[in-house]
């Protein structure tokens, strides 16, 4: 593993999604290149870090792998504090996990920073014969909600690297851009390539949670 001692940026990224969609294995594949078919439920949270290079800068990703199972989840605010990115994972072979994506988005909206970068990840793409969520459908959903989208397989390593690389690059772009511009007024008014979370349009009227 790369030496983590020095880095230019430290980004906290959370892995969220229903129980059993493969969050922990995505993490272990990315940080340790390991995969375990019989992994146990995560309790509370687990951490791992890995540094990657973007644009000549070393970016250290501190990844928070959270419990998907309700009874193993800690106080929610603990998970999203300071998170700048979220990988919202579902299982392409279990349609229910895809349906619950909306719920996870709501949780993010309620607890996470408004500017958090979200990537929708359809995991277990190796289970082709069992696919329950068409790629196009998920892609359309992601576009509608302004998320980036990728399908991965922690088992055969497909796109795992790319998923993390993409989200970290996206975060880096926003952060480095912000450092230059230091957006003068509202942090909601971001420039075009920043993904703000606009979930279901019906509840736009709800007052945003103050970040303080």
């Amino acid at each position: 593993m790369a030496k983590d001692d020095e880095y230019d940026y430290l980004f906290k990224v959370v892995l969220i999604g229903d129980s059993g969609v493969g969050k922990s294995n995505l993490l272990s594949r990315f940080t340790r290149n390991e995969f375990n078919l019989e992994s146990k439920s995560t309790i509370g949270v687990e951490f791992a870090t890995r540094s990657i290079q973007v644009d000549g800068k070393t970016i250290k990703a501190q990844i928070w792998d959270t419990a998907g199972q309700e009874r193993y989840r800690a106080i929610t605010s603990a998970y999203y504090r300071g998170a700048v990115g979220a990988l919202l994972v579902y299982d392409i072979a279990k349609h229910l996990t895809y349906e619950n994506v909306e719920r996870w988005l709501k949780e993010l909206r309620d607890h996470a920073d408004n500017n958090i970068v979200i990537m929708l990840v359809g995991n277990k793409s190796d289970l082709r014969h069992l696919r329950a969520v068409p790629t196009d459908e998920a892609k359309a959903f992601a576009e509608k909600h302004n998320l980036s989208f990728i399908e991965t397989s922690a088992l055969d390593s497909t796109n795992v690297e790319a998923a993390f690389q993409n989200i970290l690059t996206e975060i880096y772009k926003i952060v480095s851009q912000k450092q230059i511009r230091d957006s003068p007024d509202d942090d909601n008014t971001l420039s075009n390539d920043v993904r703000t979370i606009q979930v279901a349009p019906t509840d736009n009227s709800q007052p945003k949670k103050q970040c303080c």
């Binding site: 309790i43 509370g44 949270v45 687990e46 951490f47 501190q62 419990a67 009874r71 193993y72 989840r73 800690a74 106080i75 603990a78």
Partner: peptide
């Protein structure tokens, strides 16, 4: 102990402190 007891909050706190 906390993991065995599946106490998510305490696990989170302990891991966070470790981190």
């Amino acid at each position: 102990i906390a993991v065995n007891d599946a106490n998510a909050d305490i696990v989170t706190l302990l891991r966070l402190a470790k981190l």
